[in-house]
Amino acid sequence: MIRVQQEPFDVGKELAALTVGRSDIGATVTFTGQVRDFSDGADVQKMTLEHYPGMTEKELARIEAEAVRRFGLTASLIVHRVGELTPGDPIVLVIACAPHRGQAFDAARFMMDFLKTDAPFWKKEQGAGREGWVEAREEDDAARDKWK
């Protein structure tokens, strides 16, 4: 399942909804990404997340389906927020459920690595009288390419 939304998410509730009544899950890994209050040494007071409605959902669904296929996940979830966020706010949630821990750990990392480079979101940071678009990082491409 994938969702793009403005509202915050509750990790506990999402996890409970995803796994209720399931006895085929032996391992669950959850990853939450949050807004930092610093970026390349500069203060960040606010972050705005823009996305490409339609393609974003398509890319997230494609990434999730690939993780299910590759790691044999028995349940999974990707939630990503858009709009205005402040430091400490959760941005992204990835949950990977599998029969065994290795698959769940790997799948959570796989989904995040591809989300970072393929899902059309863009961050703009504001703070201390300045604002600017966050630059893509080469490390993120390298992290994704390790899966190839």
Partner: peptide, 10 residues
């Protein structure tokens, strides 16, 4: 056709 800078979500 969409044209955009490299993405920075997550």
């Amino acid at each position: 056709i969409a044209i955009f800078p490299p993405v920075t979500g997550g």
